[in-house]
Structure formats: structure tokens, C-alpha cells
Simulated scan of single mutants.
Amino acid sequence: MKRLHIIYITVIMLSLASCIEPPLHLPGQELAVDLQVAQTELNVVWDNEVQLEHEWYYGWDLKDDSIWGHIGYPTPTRYEVRRYYKGDNPLGMHTNLDAFTTNTSRFRRYFQFGYYDMLFYSDIDSEDGTQVLVMNETPDSVIATTTGTRGISRSILNMSRANSGDSTGVIGLLNQPEIFYAAYTENVYISSDLNDYEYDPVENIYIKHLEAKLRPLVYIYLVQFILYNNEDGKITGVNGNAALSSMASATNVNTGHTSSTPAVVYFNTRMKKNQVVDGQACDVIGGKLTTFGLCDNEPYTRSGSTYSGSRGNLKNYLYYDLVWNNGQVKTYDFEVTDQCLAQAHGGILTVKIDCSKLTPPESEESGSGSLFVPTVEDYDEVFWEIEI
């Protein structure tokens, strides 16, 4: 049984009553614990299963894996840590920041007595070694955005803005962010009073327990276009270009809340011919999309993954290019707002296409041609600033 999972990682912070230095480890590994040391444990928990065999018709073969990587969520192996020391004031500002990277599954650092806010986020593992995620740090928070990708034709950008109900807000085409996880814990109190700690007679140390969850802040959508009535071969293939509109352009790593500014996120597709879906012959186009999720939304919780924000009249559209048997390319769009709202933190998006009803491209038709290869005259260069 194939399943798509969202990873949860439970962080247990064990803090000592003196200057302390915590190791970070994964389950099954032995701890190297010294006296008067704080321990931090990470336990991976899987949740939010998607039954792929019932909903996912495109499949995922070795070629897909070689192009886009594994279909699921990877397990992190390295972490960034941000410790915000606030002294004796739990409401204090983040004026004292300690930032470091743990290259293994355990870390050690000394703590002062007082209050801390602590941020953990996992390593960024780019398939080709070129990271598109950009972390913008301030004393109060870390905001994750991505780089922009190739130009988008003015006609398609205008179409996206019209479909989203916002004539100016859509900021253009963004790359897919790499998957990462984060946890933010506030007001960790490191006390000098031994009564605040639990004594471990085996290790002869005093420990304090703090639990937090590393949650994914980038979600996976599996996208499939099912082409019926294409027996005459009018649709010969795809050029790989596709995009999903009205997705969040950034996320707050500390809180997991997404930006209210919508963006169009680019992804690639591949066509598999002569498939069978529900007993009917068809061709299937598929691809994998990673995104911060819907605009102005909270992170995933076990209570559900439906949308909980306030997005106004934003609508989500899939844009995709089809190649006709005369060699011409035309961009089509399909609204998937309801599917996105029901799967606000990733899932399967399905578009069913009756090829007998498709309007073929004409050379003089407005909107014909590739979605992402504009002419110089048709290019819309977009600049933006991300705020949350």
C-alpha cells in the first residue's frame, strides 16, 4: 500500500539547573550524556496518510523518481537552531540571538539562567544542489520565501490575476520551495532552583522536560490531468510547463503562518499514454508540486488540514500546456479552489479533461502558445517584497 505522509518530529528539551549543553539525537541512538548536561530528543511520528492507490492514477515510476525525487517527505538530517535569550523577562524582546547549525543528530550548547525562545528548522536538501529557499532573518522571526523563476507571459499573468479576483496582488511566478520542518518554543525557563527539575539517579543529573513538534512548512501536492477521448491522438504530449495560482508566497518559520500575498508556483509535468482509470482508456499527465500552502493559513495540525484563514475572493487555478498534433501549444486553465481548500496542507489535485471538447489553438488566438516562453514584447518583469 502506497501512502504519502506528513512527518512530525517531537522535540523533548531536557534542561539542567546550571549552565547546560544539550545533545540532539534521533530514536535508537545511544546518548553520550555528561553530568550536568541537558538532553534533547527527537522522535519522528507519521500522520495524515493519503491513500494513493484509491486517488492517484498517474503512479510514480523510476523515471519520475529520477526527475523529481522521492514522492514523499524526506527525513531531515541536519538542523538550524536559533536561541533567543530574554533574561528574566518572559515578555522581553529578542535582543540576544545565538544561531548555530547541528550537522549531526545531536548538539550541545551552554544556557544561562532565564527565559529563552527557541527555533529549530531542518536542513534544506535541494535535488540539484541549488537552493531556491531564501531565509530572511530578523531579531523577531525568520521568513521563508523562494526565488523567482522564468518569465510568465503577460496574457497568462493577467488571466491569473483575473481568476484570483485581484488585479494587482499576484506577484508573479515562483520556484517551488524545498521541503523543510520547523518548531518554535517560547519561554523556556532555565531555573537555578533544583526543585524545578527531575533527578535521574541513573545518570546522576537533574533534567527538565520540554516538548515541541517539528512540523512541515512546505507541503506536497500531487497533480494529475486525466485525458479522455484522445484516441485520435489530437493531444500528442506536453512540454512540461504547469503552474498553480493563488498559493502563499512566503511563510513565517516561527509560527508557520503563511503570507497573504498570492503567487503563481511553477512545476513540471510528464505524460503517460494508454492508461486505464476506472475502466476507461485515457492518457494521464502528472507531476509533483511543493508549496508553502494557501495564503493566510495556519500550519497543519492533527485535527485536520482544511483551510482556516481568511483569503477573500482568491481562487486557485491550475495552468497547463498541451501540445497538439499540429505541433502548436496552448495553455488551458482549470479551477481547483475546492480541492485546495479541502486539502490545505497538501494532497492530490485531479483534473479530468474531455479532449473531444477542447478548443484547438490558432496561431492568431490570444493566449495561445506556451505559458512560460513569452516573447520580448509579451514579457512581464515582476518585482516584489514579501511581508507577513
Score class of each variant (00 low, 15 high):
residue 246 S to F: 02
residue 63 K to S: 14
residue 185 T to M: 13
residue 306 T to C: 10
residue 101 T to W: 14
residue 366 S to C: 02
residue 260 S to V: 11
residue 97 L to M: 14
residue 94 H to M: 11
residue 280 Q to M: 10
residue 363 S to W: 07
residue 141 S to L: 12
residue 122 S to K: 03
residue 15 S to I: 15
residue 231 E to K: 11
residue 325 N to K: 15
residue 191 S to W: 02
residue 223 V to L: 02
residue 4 L to N: 01
residue 152 I to H: 01
residue 88 D to K: 09
residue 161 R to H: 06
residue 84 Y to M: 15
residue 318 L to G: 02
residue 208 K to E: 09
residue 4 L to H: 00
residue 119 L to P: 07
residue 56 W to F: 10
residue 87 G to M: 08
residue 99 A to Q: 09
residue 280 Q to I: 13
residue 242 A to S: 14
residue 189 Y to D: 05
residue 301 T to R: 10
residue 165 G to M: 07
residue 113 F to Y: 12
residue 72 G to A: 08
residue 383 F to M: 07
residue 312 G to L: 04
residue 181 Y to H: 09
residue 155 S to C: 09
residue 251 T to F: 04
residue 79 Y to P: 05
residue 9 I to V: 14
residue 121 Y to H: 15
residue 127 E to I: 15
residue 250 A to F: 10
residue 94 H to V: 10
residue 213 K to V: 11
residue 368 S to I: 04
residue 310 S to M: 11
residue 87 G to V: 11
residue 228 Y to I: 01
residue 182 A to I: 03
residue 274 N to Y: 13
residue 326 N to D: 15
residue 227 L to M: 07
residue 33 V to R: 07
residue 365 E to C: 02
residue 90 P to F: 01
residue 193 D to P: 00
residue 267 F to C: 03
residue 384 W to T: 09
residue 37 V to C: 05
residue 151 G to M: 13
residue 355 C to N: 08
residue 124 I to H: 07
residue 137 E to D: 13
residue 269 T to F: 02
residue 346 G to W: 04
residue 334 F to Y: 15
residue 278 D to R: 12
residue 226 I to T: 10
residue 200 D to G: 03
residue 178 E to I: 04
residue 5 H to D: 09
residue 35 L to Q: 12
residue 21 E to A: 13
residue 172 G to P: 08
residue 36 Q to F: 15
residue 315 K to Y: 04
residue 174 L to P: 00
residue 56 W to G: 02
residue 269 T to H: 01
residue 121 Y to A: 02
residue 313 N to V: 13
